[in-house]
Write a protein that binds this DNA or RNA. Sequence first.
DNA 1: TCTTGACGACCGACCGTCGGTCTGTAATAT
DNA 2: ATATTACAGACCGACGGTCGGTCGTCAAGA
Lengths: 229, 229
Amino acid sequence: MPRIVKSADDRRNEILDGAQALFFERGYERTTVNDVIAKVGISKGGFYHHFSAKEDLLEGITARLAQDAVARVRDILDDPALGALERLNAFLARSRQMKREDAPKLRAAFDVIFRPENLLLYHRINAASIAVMRPVLTRIIVEGTAEGVFAVPEPEAAADVILHIGASTHDIMARTIAASGTAEEDAAIEELDRRLHFYGIAVDRILGLPDGSVPFVEPGFTRAVMTAR
Amino acid sequence: MPRIVKSADDRRNEILDGAQALFFERGYERTTVNDVIAKVGISKGGFYHHFSAKEDLLEGITARLAQDAVARVRDILDDPALGALERLNAFLARSRQMKREDAPKLRAAFDVIFRPENLLLYHRINAASIAVMRPVLTRIIVEGTAEGVFAVPEPEAAADVILHIGASTHDIMARTIAASGTAEEDAAIEELDRRLHFYGIAVDRILGLPDGSVPFVEPGFTRAVMTAR
DNA sequence: TCTTGACGACCGACCGTCGGTCTGTAATAT
DNA sequence: ATATTACAGACCGACGGTCGGTCGTCAAGA
């Protein structure tokens, strides 16, 4: 085979791109290192020159995804005109907007990520996003507590709890996706929507706010994302 | 090798016992099927006669553990004399008592379960215990809402959230265990204790109770469990 | 009581796959 | 010219899982 040399960064990202595509298509375990190098057009030796193990791919991919996600809300986080509650709601609104925008891609990824055999992949993505969001959310809570809007004794712990509440959607999400195309799809989406609505209430309460202050979903959001093609 | 024949149930439990011991000692991935059959004193064929895959061991073990755990609190769950809040607190108190009783074994298991490479093992155990506890906790919340003591619009969702809050302790637990034996051990335990205390408050708020109604920890509990030998 | 035969528990050699290593080489930098 | 980096690809050992066959058990028929 002809030898193609590229800069380390470019090659690394190429590998990450290929791996990410495969992971979101077949899952982590069902994707072999040989699959990845075949897709990227690279040799085994080349791969292991850039990554010391298959697991490193997960780290690289999830780190990139998380960095990305936070970059897209940076302006909201840095806007000095916003109060804590406004900032939090603007952040959540932006997140929803982004999800709506690439709902089809997201939905396709969900199909794979929420399969039981891909638990590890899901968990890593989740852990990475929590790690990135924790300091962000903590800052907002500290801010809100200083403003006297929130009433939270342990901001960092509260941030952790709130972020993990998102993880508790896993099961219902999985169920909803499994029900996709069947007669129960509609009911499953309804239930998921009710759940997400309640999670907003849980956040309100943890922050010491009146119910409904921090909406997690807006009308039609859940259905729009879950039925996207 | 001499052939030893036993009833399917006995053999199955023997295999589960051996596998559980190994998983809690070396973790799931680092335990091979050959390790298990060597420990139990059985052949490869024998093993696959009772289990269709290595993963089935996880299911079997976690199911057993979860069944066990719920059996040990059955009396509290069934006691008609208890109100919902009393029942919930009695349940948590019993759980703590059980943890204190076999703190050394628990602590040893923690050492393995919270290592990053054993994420799958941890997750399965957690998922199984949540699956078992969900209906139990849901019932308590429904009861409490009917009594007018709790104020929860979606009992099942609330149960899910509360159970998942426990999962958010994973990171700090892992950190605390990693700090074991170092100079930071003391500070890590303090922080873990503060976190657990806050989780109690989060539960109070989700249930619509005044802060401090549902204590997650009692003084000295965290240290007692985490420093057990 | 003894034989027979079916069934299920069990054996262990074997296999394919997969993550990872190693030796070597072409391209690039110094 | 030389060192370093980026890559190639044959190879390896370990592991999960399979498969054809064996042996203990027990019940029915002679």
